[in-house]
């Protein structure tokens, strides 16, 4: 499955005249677990907003398969957006709906299923994320980690081809973060879902990532793309090594700290 799913071409992102990142070029293949990494404030979440169509690029292009997202017709763009699922940083569940209603919302809008079948699928999705039986709870009544998992269940409601995660492990305890990682891997393996994760959790990056892009806030562009393990082993850029080793440096390049 090494065909490109998302292609980013010469992408420049800016808020007005303030450029966040320029000249981004990378490819996300079908079935990848793609990590967007970089220090705080380097534009990771902004890149995600460009990928999911919430913000239009200042320059350059984003292709879904062969389709140029920002040059496509409105109708086509909506079609593309319906094939993706997004887990926002804080879950972004609708606070006035129960968990079941949150997940049933896209199912009710975009499928012809009857209420009974929707309820079954909702129960299954909640069970997948370990929340069986929590259908009738409101988001405010469950913990932050549970909200995040419920958000994942909603993102998966329509069996998306691409799942985007914004900081999935932020605010989760290590064990829950690990369980979420496992869930991401098994989804990727069983459903062939392409997964894009914004994170700076090193443990997650190495555990799940098969491909990645490294954004740098000083030079305002990407420094590298590729498998994170390979980046660590082969890169000669001190900024990447420092990031991937929590500033401790690699065994063969121990003096790397303090270079920047």
């Amino acid at each position: 499955m090494n065909t490109p799913h998302i292609t980013v071409q010469d992408l420049t992102m800016a808020y007005g005249s303030f450029v966040i990142q320029r000249d981004l070029n990378f490819t996300i293949d079908h079935g990848d677990v793609f990590i967007i990494m970089g220090g705080s404030g380097c534009g990771k979440s902004t890149l995600l907003r460009h990928l999911i169509g919430l913000k239009s690029p200042a320059k350059g292009n984003v292709f879904y398969d062969q389709l140029s997202f920002w040059q496509a017709e409105e109708e086509q763009r909506i079609q593309v957006m319906r094939r993706i699922g997004v887990l926002y940083q804080s879950g972004a569940l609708f606070s006035s709906l129960t968990l079941a209603e949150n997940i049933a919302l896209p199912l009710g809008e975009f499928t012809d299923l009857n209420a009974k079948d929707i309820a079954d699928i909702v129960a299954y999705k909640l069970a997948l994320v370990g929340l069986a039986g929590f259908e009738d709870y409101y988001p405010a009544e469950i913990s932050g980690g549970m909200q995040k998992r419920a958000g994942l269940a909603r993102a998966m409601a329509l069996d998306p081809e691409i799942l985007f995660f914004d900081e999935p492990s932020a605010g989760l305890d290590p064990v829950s973060a690990r369980l979420l990682d496992d869930l991401i891997i098994s989804l990727c393996a069983t459903l062939g879902t392409t997964i894009v994760v914004v994170t700076h959790e090193l443990a997650s990056i190495f555990a799940i990532g098969t491909n990645s892009v490294f954004l740098d806030s000083e030079s305002k562009t990407m420094l590298a793309t590729g498998n994170p393990k390979q980046l660590l082993a082969e890169s000669n850029d001190p900024r990447i090594i420092q990031f991937l080793t929590r500033g401790e440096g690699r065994a063969d390049k121990p003096n790397v700290t303090g270079v920047i």
Binding site: A127, G130, A132, G133, F134
Partner: peptide, 8 residues
């Protein structure tokens, strides 16, 4: 996966 976490 769906049955891994039993209903609380």
């Amino acid at each position: 996966l769906a049955r891994a976490v039993p209903e609380r």
